[in-house]
Structure formats: structure tokens, C-alpha cells
């Protein structure tokens, strides 16, 4: 694919930003995919008990708040983790990574709810599996290890999904001048934390 130019390959635990932007059509799809956040958040936020009503305007506000949080966290992470690229380039890489990971995690969570409904329940599949554990109960909450555990698992599923899609449709080998993605060890927990805080906030009365 590179006509003899130097190439690099995404590591196992690397978010494949380079592989996504290496192919134009794939990059275009990824940037449009982020807009799925609005309908996905609408679907999810109107599932939680004690959450917003179906006619609520704040759902758009909440999606925008999440994007703001992702960009804010990107600025901080770009300061903390330096890998040779400029600060603005690192912020962009982190922002793209967190937004894609967030929307894909929302997609996984929404699929969990769809499957849960298939069993006649109002909760997602992972919760239904885990609710037999001690101290598990209605969620999400703003600061709650149980909510966080469930969201980390959905975020892991999202990371695996993205890696699979990139492997199938993307460009596994990409030019060496394209950016490398952040490590999933940071991306997955951060995404889960953003989701926990934002979703938990929507239940406060």
C-alpha cells in the first residue's frame, strides 16, 4: 500500500488512529460515525430509571457535554503523555480516539440494552449477568464502582470491535508519518469514566 515508503503497524494495545486516517473513505466514515452519539445517547438516557423523559432537550446538551469532556481530557492527556508529536497533534489524536471509543462504547451498551429487552428486561445484558453479585443494583451512578465495572467491560468490547473493524476494512499498515494512537490501557478506563459521570449526572434530581 505504501509504494516502498516506511510503514508502521499498530500494536496490540494501541488505538488504531493511524490505520483509520490512512484510508480516506474510512476516515470519512469514522467522522460521520461520531454523530451517532446523539441517537445512541437518546436511546440510552431514555432507558435509565430516574433518567430524563423522552421529550427532554437535555439529551443534546448531555452529548455536547461529553464531547467537551473528551476534548478537555485530551488536552490533559496530551500534556501528560509525550511521544514526539506536537502538543496540538497529540490533542487531536486523543480527541479523535476518545470520541470514537466513546461512541463505539455507547453502541455496545445500546446493543446490551436491545439484547436485555429481548429477555423481557429493562436492563442491559451485562447488568443482567452481574446483578446476582452482592451489592449490585440499579445503575448508573456518578461515582460508583459497579457502574464503572460495567462500563469498562463495554469499553473493552468497543475496543475489540474497533480493532476488528480496522483489521477487516482499514489499513493495518500505515505510513510512518501518520500518528500513532494512544494506549488502550488509558483509553478504555477514561472512556468508561466519562460515561459513568455523564450518565450518572442525568439521574440527579
Amino acid at each position: 500500500m505504501t509504494n516502498g515508503a516506511a510503514v508502521q503497524h499498530a500494536d496490540c494495545l494501541e488505538f488504531p488512529v493511524g490505520a483509520i486516517v490512512a484510508r480516506r473513505g474510512f476516515e470519512d466514515f469514522a467522522s460521520r460515525f461520531v454523530w451517532l452519539a446523539i441517537p445512541l445517547e437518546y436511546y440510552l438516557l431514555t432507558r435509565f430509571t430516574g433518567g430524563v423523559e423522552i421529550w427532554s432537550l437535555p439529551i443534546v446538551f448531555i452529548a455536547l457535554l461529553t464531547i467537551g469532556m473528551a476534548i478537555g481530557i485530551s488536552c490533559i492527556m496530551a500534556l501528560l503523555i509525550r511521544d514526539g508529536a506536537s502538543y496540538s497533534a497529540r490533542v487531536r489524536i486523543w480527541a479523535v480516539t476518545l470520541l470514537l471509543q466513546w461512541v463505539t462504547s455507547l453502541l455496545m451498551l445500546a446493543m446490551g440494552y436491545v439484547l436485555g429487552r429481548g429477555f423481557g428486561e429493562d436492563y442491559d445484558l451485562l447488568y443482567l449477568v452481574m446483578r446476582g453479585l452482592p451489592n449490585f443494583g440499579s445503575y448508573p451512578w456518578v461515582l460508583d464502582p459497579r457502574t464503572y465495572t460495567i462500563y469498562v467491560l463495554y469499553s473493552v468490547a468497543a475496543a475489540i470491535f474497533i480493532k476488528l473493524v480496522v483489521r477487516l476494512f482499514g489499513e493495518p499498515d500505515f505510513p510512518a508519518d501518520l500518528p500513532r494512537g494512544p494506549n488502550l490501557v488509558f483509553v478504555v478506563p477514561l472512556t468508561a469514566a466519562i460515561m459513568m459521570v455523564v450518565h450518572g449526572l442525568t439521574r440527579l434530581s
Binding site: 430509571t49 428486561e121 436492563y123
Partner: peptide, 25 residues
């Protein structure tokens, strides 16, 4: 529990969101 949780659990079927804690406990 918040009034929203309590009311949504006890809403008419079309608007109902069942809360697992309320169902079980």
C-alpha cells in the same frame, strides 16, 4: 430513591421503566 425513579417504575405501561432495586427490594 428519587421521585423520578419511583414514578417511572409506577408509570402506565407505555411510559414505564422498571427499576431493578424497586422490583427486588
Amino acid at each position: 430513591v428519587s421521585l423520578q425513579r419511583y414514578y417511572q417504575h409506577h408509570a402506565p405501561p407505555s411510559a414505564r421503566r422498571r427499576d431493578d432495586d424497586l422490583s427486588r427490594k
